[in-house]
């Protein structure tokens, strides 16, 4: 993910359309991916748009305490969670809080080919909301546990446990194709 330079960010705060365009171009792809994973393809564009409106509305208040990419993804996370809450999806309640039995991939499964990606994408869509969110945020390489915790408004140890459970569950889904 790119990080906007200080000058572009300053122009964003002043509402310069060219700078806002650069912000949009820089983060459209990760935001879209996160949103697409969280709310599904049908509503992804609308929620993505909602996210950027929220980002543009708040960029003047961005204090630079975190990286801009982390902040944008945190905004996207909140918009997704609000959207999901509105939809009253209750996947979290269906989530097991206990440890998942660990299934491992066979060496041939571990090949990152097109079929594997498709199966993984399907498996991710079946994860409970918070696990999907954690795995998706983690898939942006810059996001540390601390940044994920901040975006998801939870503790560090919860991020660690959620990611672990998500991975176990993904392996189980992949195994039971």
């Amino acid at each position: 993910m790119i990080e906007l330079d200080a000058e572009t960010l300053r122009r964003c705060r002043r509402g310069d359309p060219a700078a806002l365009g650069a912000l949009y171009d820089g983060y459209r792809q990760p935001v879209y991916y996160l949103v697409r994973r969280m709310v599904g393809e049908a509503e992804a564009e609308d929620v993505c748009q909602e996210t950027f409106i929220a980002v543009f509305g708040a960029v003047a208040k961005f204090e630079g305490k975190s990286k801009l990419s982390t902040w944008v993804l945190a905004v996207a996370t909140r918009v997704c969670l609000m959207h999901l809450r509105k939809r009253r999806r209750r996947e979290i309640s269906a989530e097991s809080t206990g440890d998942e039995p660990l299934t491992l991939l066979s060496p041939s499964d571990a090949l990152l080919n097109k079929e594997f990606f498709q199966r993984l994408a399907d498996a991710m869509d079946r994860l409970p909301e918070n696990q999907r969110m954690a795995v998706t945020l983690r898939s942006f390489e810059e996001m540390s546990y601390e940044e994920i915790a901040r975006a998801m408004n939870c503790r560090l140890d919860q991020v660690r446990a959620t990611l672990f459970r998500a991975r176990c569950r993904l392996l189980k889904f992949l195994e039971g194709r």
Binding site: Y33, L104, A110, R138, S139, R167
Partner: peptide, 14 residues
Amino acid sequence: RSFEAVQRGAESLA
């Protein structure tokens, strides 16, 4: 390796 495959796969999807 299994965790890594899942993680790398997720990163590629992203």
